[in-house]
Amino acid sequence: MTPRAHRPGSLDSVADLVGIVRTELGLPVTEESASVDFDEVTGWDSLHLLSLCSILEQRTGRALSLADVLEARTLAQVYALAAA
């Protein structure tokens, strides 16, 4: 998978979001870890949510509520916000 594989991207599933996190943030997350609390995800820190929010906005062309994204505890929750 190259960084280009997810661009310009749709966001149709949690798997898409996992791919974005892997390519954009370089974190080795999997679909299984999407429902794991960020505290348990190796290499995760809260600043990743800031980057992820702006990447997802670029990708989907829609504004997200950063305040809500910062409250998310799992990638699955981020996906729910972005896909809503």
């Binding site: 998978m1 190259t2 960084p3 280009r4 390519t23 370089g26």
Partner: peptide
């Protein structure tokens, strides 16, 4: 270059 860097990372 981006692809090669990604391969190195992966």
């Amino acid at each position: 270059a981006a692809a090669e860097l990604w391969e190195l990372h992966a």
